[in-house]
Nucleic acid binder design. Structure first.
Lengths: 115, 115
DNA sequence: TCCTTATTTCCAGAATTATCGAAATATATT
DNA sequence: AATATATTTCGATAATTCTGGAAATAAGGA
């Protein structure tokens, strides 16, 4: 049986491995903690509301986004902790004790650390 | 038409969004620049050689691994630059100028930077 | 209550992907 | 040349995922 960690990672990667969903996720990542209403996302990305809803459900099930109701709208926002957890899993043990090996990864990390 | 960047990112994420392929990729990431022979990977992960071959092809097409022949064996290794590029794309503009928002991501970055 | 807006759920067909046995290719050894 | 080892390619079935139309649900406003 596969480890639970890898199953969860595959679920998150599968959620992101789709052009429409990756666009939604990136839009939410940029939108920040306030998030965006489903309708706003649909208009910005020009997708049908039912298709968007299905894709948001996939992202939410994977834990990458969360939602709350605000009047008639449902506001979605990216889950930064979950995203960080996924990145962490991908780079886990990448170095294996040798700093020179994972230099490209460290460079990305340095860029992220600037903020 | 979607940007080429997002298409390539989806290709890489799709390649990783599979339990068998993610295991292979992580094994190669840990194996380092010397890589591993296809047969060694098949034995370590207990998968059929033809199934493994198909999955290695998917990873190679996505640019996440590369291969070279060594006698009868074909040695595969992870492409660290490509992995770094994917991570970079995922965290791109995550901060949007506000350091407090992407703190969890920065924490992962700091961990990666330790090596 | 009736109407409008916002979003989701249901459904079915279309398309894509995964898996494995069998055969083929490539290299090395004797 | 004949054989063994290493890996890939082919082909067919099984399983999963994607999409969009239509209907349903939820909330606010007249």
């Amino acid at each position: 049986m596969a480890s639970q960690k890898i199953v969860k990672a595959v679920e998150a990667l599968s959620a992101l491995a789709h052009e429409g969903r990756l666009s939604v996720f990136r839009l939410l990542v940029r939108a920040g903690p306030d998030g965006l209403a489903a309708g706003d996302i649909a208009r910005k990305l020009d997708v049908l509301p039912n298709t968007l809803s299905a894709n948001l459900t996939v992202l939410a099930t994977a834990g990458l986004v969360s939602s709350r109701r605000d009047g008639r709208s449902i506001i979605y926002k990216a889950d930064y902790d979950r995203m960080a957890g996924l990145l962490n899993f991908l780079i886990e043990d990448c170095c294996n004790g040798d700093a020179s090996i994972c230099a490209p990864v460290a460079a990305v990390a340095a860029k992220a650390a600037c903020c």
